[in-house]
Design a protein around this nucleic acid. Structure first.
Lengths: 146, 146
DNA sequence: CCTCTTATTTATCATTTGATAATCAAATCA
DNA sequence: TGATTTGATTATCAAATGATAAATAAGAGG
């Protein structure tokens, strides 16, 4: 098996994934927040509660910038900060009610576009898609760190 | 088949793809260019020659901004602009020698990280991966427009 | 030839993002 | 206790990006 060919397929495949996800998520974010802020909210939504440092690591930005964006999200009442009772330096970030609402809407809109995209797929196709996702997720796009 | 479950898998899958490609491509770009400029070069590298408008569509930016970034790449001698002999409004963009060099280095570095990632995969795994990519590319991450 | 459209560029602007240094307060540790 | 480390914030700055209006210049169609 020629791994170079596989690499080429990988390159064009990930380009496709990026293009399609961009298409699906285009304009779903409310105009009141920026792209990074939306990404942060997404991050929080998926794994809340999180500490600013964790967000920081995932998003690969610097602490001062993370902090700044979190403040902005806080001002907009989209997140809540909850102090750790043990270690008073730490905080836990959750979505506020408004934040939950915003993200639910966003996800709903993405899901409906997704369903549109697979509307013509047969039962067989869907099975294939599911299996393929599972395979790639475990064998190629796995995570190194816990 | 529950399409909602599939949607959830899709969400976590595309997050994985983004994370992994980010890992593979992290720091491969030379410091002399910005992130967008690198993306544009990637785009050109894959489908040269391209017109500014085409880049524009793929990258989903506005023409004035595309034009600006192309000029910058031109100043840095990373691309060449070739006029269309028929339609003098059109141009074709290619990588210059320096540009080719830069992108070859980048791709080589990405490829070596990619190979590392699949180094423990068996022949069977590789076959599975390849088939899965093909399936997803045609059935899920297909392109709508030509 | 005159208009209309297309492909691109120039100029300008506000906003977002990234990076750095300095500060603060709480925890840890010697 | 005093020094150091950790988690987070504030302030500031330069650079990158995005958006808009306006200009240019060449095709296309009547």
């Amino acid at each position: 098996m020629d791994k170079s060919i596989l690499f080429n397929k990988f390159v064009s495949f990930s380009a496709s994934v990026h293009r399609v996800t961009h298409e699906l998520t285009k304009d779903v974010k409310s105009d009141s927040i920026t792209q990074v802020q939306y990404k942060i909210l997404e991050n929080i939504a998926i794994s809340q509660p999180v500490t600013p440092s964790e967000i920081n690591d995932c998003m690969q930005m610097s602490m001062p910038n993370t902090s700044r964006e979190l403040s902005k999200l806080s001002e907009k009442n989209l997140i809540k900060k909850i102090g750790d009772s043990k270690d008073k330096r730490k905080q836990y970030i959750c979505l506020s009610q408004d934040g939950e609402l915003l993200m639910n809407e966003a996800f709903a809109s993405i899901e409906s576009r997704f369903l549109e995209r697979i509307q013509n797929a047969t039962k067989e196709d869907l099975k294939d898609i599911e299996r393929s996702i599972d395979i790639l997720q475990t064998k190629l796009f796995y995570s190194n760190y816990k």
